[in-house]
Design a protein around this nucleic acid. Structure first.
Length: 333
DNA sequence: GGTAGACCTGGACGC
DNA sequence: GCGTCCAGGTCTACC
């Protein structure tokens, strides 16, 4: 008989909307079921792995979540699970700061960005998203979970792996050595103090500079890890950003010029600029593929690559959510 | 400080 | 079916 936990959430929390808010919800071991509106993954707990299914009764906003585990978990493990789930779902995020600076998203309630249960998983997922098309990122994460650990590889597991094995069996290519080095960085004495990175008192500039010193982490990856740490003061500019500038914002010019212009454009959103940028991008994705909570990893979830999305959005085909919730994002203008 | 090319994989395309 | 080209961000060598 497995354990079921009741997890209280903020009154505006919407499981479907807030899980399906960032592409990592499509990456293994995460799995969203559009039919049952439930989130599934394997968590690593003190006494071993456990598969959890998280649902929100009736899909109703603000209703406490039920987290059902496939085995009985101890009190200590329950605490661990609550911490990991809260991190993934951003349950501690005060969304008011964002809506105050960018009221466009107040009506839809968009604010939380889905992330991983640990900073390490977010870092590895970011590295697997660099210099590669999105379907390959999906494949790499799936294989890492199949080959190394169903709950996602831990720092220790990656530190002990041979690069050539990661390359051959997980398809990570030249990232092999970098993944092993990141594992070593997180397990070595004096390597990574996660608390320092997650401490709001640590200046954003210091975090950014520190990230740039890690293997496989350049300006884009560092900016992305920043937002996954809840630090939204920087953009993570990539080819998708350039496409957004051209297609959605209607800008013209050289890519380098547009990148500079993007940075200036979002400055008005201050320390929330990544979220303002991201939800504009996400809204465009949903206009093309339907609400994110309807996406399936193997089909619609594969579509997000700048080269595949250059053409303007076609007629909007939105699925109708059977619940009473507002899953789609329509700006409250 | 700026730039060019290599890194690896998979999809698109032409034959 | 096969070969070629291209996209994607980081790293390194070179100027």
């Amino acid at each position: 008989m497995g354990t079921t936990l009741t997890i209280r959430v903020p009154s505006d929390f919407d499981l479907a909307r807030d899980v399906c808010s960032y592409g990592y919800f499509l990456l293994a071991p995460n799995r969203w079921d559009p039919e049952s509106l439930t989130f599934h993954r394997v968590l690593r707990l003190r006494d071993g792995r456990s598969a959890v299914t998280i649902g929100q009764a009736g899909g109703k906003r603000g209703v406490a979540l039920k987290a059902r585990f496939d085995r009985a978990i101890s009190r200590t493990e329950q605490g661990e699970a609550r911490t990991q789930i809260a991190r993934m779902l951003q349950l501690d995020d005060d969304v008011r700061a964002f809506h105050k600076i960018d009221p466009r998203w107040k009506k839809s309630g968009r604010a939380r960005l889905f992330r991983s249960p640990t900073m390490f998983e977010d870092v590895i997922k970011t590295v697997t998203s660099c210099n590669v098309a999105w379907p390959s990122t999906i494949r790499m994460n799936a294989r890492l979970c199949e080959v190394v650990d169903a709950a996602f590889p831990s720092p220790r597991q990656l530190a002990r792996r041979t690069p050539s094995v990661l390359r051959a069996r997980c398809g990570v290519g030249y990232r092999d050595q970098r993944l092993v080095d990141l594992g070593k960085l997180f397990t070595s004495k004096g390597g990574v103090d996660v608390g320092w990175f997650e401490d709001p008192a640590t200046p954003d500039d210091d975090v950014f500079e520190a990230l740039l010193g890690w293997p496989g982490i350049g300006p884009y990856a560092a900016g992305n890890i920043m937002q996954l740490l809840g630090r939204y003061s920087r953009l993570a500019v990539d080819t998708e950003s350039v496409r957004h500038a051209k297609v959605t914002l209607g800008w013209e010019g050289e890519d380098a010029e547009l990148r500079t212009r993007l940075e200036a454009h979002y400055q008005r959103f201050g320390d929330q600029r990544f979220r303002s940028y991201w939800f504009e991008l996400w809204e465009d994705y949903e206009a093309r593929q339907g609400p994110a909570w309807t996406w399936v990893r193997e089909t619609t979830g594969q579509a997000f690559t700048a080269s595949r999305m250059r053409e303007p959005a076609g007629p909007v085909r939105r699925a109708v959510r059977k619940t009473t919730q507002t899953g789609s994002v329509r700006r409250g203008r």
